[in-house]
Design a protein around this nucleic acid. Structure first.
Lengths: 308, 308
DNA sequence: CTGAAAGCGCTTACAG
DNA sequence: CTGAAAGCGCTTACAG
């Protein structure tokens, strides 16, 4: 079982009767070289016929880094946002001959470092970093960024007449939670609503119900809850159910990031859908030093169901 | 901003007064070489002091393939199984100086091929492949494999007195669905129950309810439904709720793979929890040609809540 | 317009 | 026990 020997530059050079250098120039469209079109033709044909594929490793050794971009995903916000973001990033990198390596953040930082040293990626991204950029967001961010997405929830609730809104947050705070609360509150301010209060809803069902009960007792004016994500929305919905509160009549709940179970719970969850594929593509272009001005963002939108 | 030059073998060799070859022998513990312990000491110290990290790219070029193992994930069974499997695979590969590259299966096969040609991974795995091995499972598989996990659901229902069981399946069949049904049915046979019938539950809420209604009308003896995963369990639960059927009294439902929302729905979902980390580790060892006999599997277990 | 040559950093027969 | 040398496949100054 002879494993078919790899076709190399040398083979293409031999087949087309030129040097390896020339083949490389042609295949990489080197702008500093002028290659006669007949030579170019010959090289291209030979390359095609032999099924030549550049050896990424050799190229990487020569270029100083591999065509791998690492994405660290260390907070698990599995949903449309992350999936679409990764899809866009992946596709755009592939279009530019790079590979996306997704690192799920379980590994110890030390092992991660060893790995990075070993594969020499072109770039290392952290999921959510770009998303969180601009805590004091610019216009762009209020249109398509994190701020805009946070605003969608509040605006929807405001349209339904709610003036006192709380935000349901996970028990383990991380950078994004603070930012979300900030943007939601800023949106409420702009709309002339009461400040957004925060409500931590732990995962265990009983503790969740207890937390929501205590919160509502302490904040009787609150009639709507914007959840950090659909998971927290579900925790909140379950807590309200267990407390015998009617949704949305007594308390409205809106989720975030449109997970698949939102439509299946009762009452069905109103939520925010975010397609981040374009954002992923922008990240890819940016990391490769390419212009991304032509990419248009898909705005987030509210999926209206029954809970708000 | 001079980027700190990389420490190479040559530096370590110079610092310890030996050749690059010797350094390589020491650092790789080459069994074909006998190195004096004083030399070994000196090399190790120099390497440590200089913070030497082998250049993975150069090594890969020399060795013929990179220390990357690709995992293709193309059916999205996000839950404990996949997460724990990936965690184990990742950790074990890291322990052996390899990196896991997770490819989410959205990319076109052609681009995937180009990528693989470019990075020359040590191995390419397909998620679920090992899991599905042995459609006619051996003893091992009935203990810790796919068959055993499928059996857990049926056994739990049988213990609760159910004799006529259906399996809720997604509308798009894929290899795993057939295997699951097969194993469930085989388990029912061994336990002396009626054959397991299949029930396709589409995602849209109304179609789901319609499908379940029609099914129950056609199969009045069925009192329990084992779902393909928690998502299908939730679809089924929702359908039963919408049809006014009481769970578990009229129909019991058991999920699979213990997603986080199972505890939050009403009635809370009884499900199967599978810790596949050891399986991931075995896959890593296997792919590297290492012995995996010492790894012990964690058996799956039923998480009993209210739905069955 | 094209080619010979150097070199990226490593591993491993091979020779001593 | 240790070192000099070749070579993995590529890119890119450099010389013609």
């Amino acid at each position: 079982m002879e494993p078919a020997r790899r076709v190399t530059l040398k083979d293409v050079a031999a087949a087309s009767g030129v040097s390896r250098a020339t083949v490389s120039f042609v295949l990489n469209d080197d702008p500093n070289q002028t290659i006669s079109s007949s030579t170019r033709e010959r090289v291209l044909r030979a390359s095609r016929e032999l099924g030549y594929v550049p050896h990424g490793i050799a190229r990487a050794l020569r270029e100083g880094s591999s065509r791998i971009v690492v994405l660290n995903v260390d907070w698990s916000m599995e949903g449309n946002f992350s999936r679409s973001y990764i899809r866009g990033l992946d596709a755009e990198l592939a279009a530019h001959d790079h590979v996306l390596l997704v690192r799920h953040g379980e590994a110890a930082p030390q092992s991660t470092q060893r790995i990075l040293d070993a594969i020499v990626p072109r770039a290392v991204l952290r999921f959510g970093e770009a998303y969180m950029d601009g805590h004091e967001p610019d216009q762009e961010d209020w249109e398509h960024g994190f701020a805009a997405h946070a605003a969608l929830q509040i605006r929807h609730l405001a349209e339904r007449g709610h003036t006192h809104i709380a935000m349901a947050l996970p028990d383990h705070a991380f950078p994004l939670t603070g930012a979300r609360l900030h943007f939601a509150d800023e949106t409420a301010r702009r709309l002339g609503l009461a400040p957004v209060t925060d409500l931590v809803v732990p995962r265990p069902r009983e503790s969740g119900a207890a937390a929501v009960r205590a919160f509502l007792a302490a904040h009787p004016a609150v009639t709507a809850i914007a959840a950090f994500d659909d998971d927290l929305a579900l925790r909140t919905l379950t807590a309200l159910h267990d407390l015998g509160r009617v949704v949305p009549d007594e308390v409205a709940v809106i989720g975030y990031d449109d997970t698949e179970y939102g439509a299946l719970v009762t009452p069905a969850l109103t939520t925010v859908h975010i397609d981040a594929e374009a954002k992923g593509r922008v990240a890819a272009r940016t990391v490769l030093g390419l212009d991304a001005a032509d990419l248009v963002m898909t705005p987030g939108r509210v999926i209206v169901r029954d809970s708000a």
